Computed example of a mutant assay.
Amino acid sequence: MFSASKLTQEQKEALKQWAAEGATMSDLQRRLKDDFDHTLTYMDTRFLILDLGIELIEEPKVVKKEEEEKPAPVPTGTVTTTMDTLTLPGALVSGKVTFSDGETGVWMLDQTGRPGLDPDTPGYRPTPEDIKEFQIQLRDLIQKSGL
């Protein structure tokens, strides 16, 4: 294990300067090797930085536009329910639903007839009115399919 006491005051100041210039932990590790011939593990470098009280400057993470903001659902004012032509595994029937506020999800009836709804937005809860309309449309779809 490497100790900060093995560094001269000049080397400690150099580390602080590099960090102030935006060097990363890996940069400091490499420069300790290249400039001062001190070979440290990444963990030793990390402990050294902590011992010397050096704070690294973190660059703000660049977030891609699509990660930054998901497109808001487009409210349609109506509930639309469709049935899949290729049923989900383990389901008797399955399909997709778009609620009046534009939120979407996948629905299914399992082999025992239990309904399931998996909204695309985690934690989403449709309004009671939308649930009622969804149930009506679901019943109509199932009757038309002959199940």
Rank of each mutant, 00 (worst) to 15 (best):
G123T: 01
R114T: 11
L147G: 02
E13K: 11
G77I: 07
I54N: 04
K6D: 09
P119I: 08
E67G: 00
F2Q: 10
L56M: 13
D130M: 07
V63P: 01
T87G: 00
G90T: 02
P73H: 04
D37E: 13
V63R: 08
V79N: 04
G95S: 05
L117M: 14
T112V: 12
E67T: 07
R125S: 10
T127K: 14
K12R: 15
W107A: 04
Y42A: 08
K144H: 10
D140N: 15
D37N: 14
D34H: 04
K64W: 12
P75T: 05
T39G: 00
P119G: 03
D51F: 00
L28N: 05
E58Q: 14
E133L: 12
P73N: 06
L56D: 11
S3R: 14
E133V: 15
A91D: 03
T76K: 07
K132R: 12
D27M: 09
G123A: 05
D120T: 08
K96M: 06
P122D: 12
E69P: 00
R139D: 13
A14G: 01
F134D: 02
V62F: 11
R31H: 11
F99N: 02
D27A: 08
P89T: 09
E69T: 10
Q135A: 15
P122Y: 04
D130P: 07
S100Y: 07
Q9N: 12
E69I: 11
L109H: 08
G146L: 13
E59K: 15
K16P: 00
R31Q: 13
T82V: 06
T39F: 03
K61P: 01
Q111D: 05
S5N: 11
T80D: 09
K6P: 00
K61S: 09
D118I: 11
T8P: 09
L50Q: 12
P128C: 02
S145G: 03
G102C: 07
Y124A: 07
E59Y: 06
G53L: 09
P119T: 04
P75R: 01
K65H: 08
T78K: 15
P115M: 08
T8M: 11
T104G: 06
Y124V: 07
M43V: 09
Q137Y: 02
L92H: 08
E66I: 13
S100H: 10
T39H: 02
M83I: 14
L7R: 13
K12C: 11
P126E: 01
K16V: 03
E69Y: 04
V62C: 01
R31I: 06
R46E: 06
G105S: 08
D51T: 06
E59V: 12
L28Q: 02
L92T: 06
F99V: 05
V62T: 14
V93D: 01
L32Q: 05
T98C: 03
E129N: 08
G146T: 12
L50I: 12
L138Q: 13
I57T: 15
T98Q: 14
P126Y: 05
L92C: 03
M25S: 06
M25T: 11
V93R: 14
E66G: 00
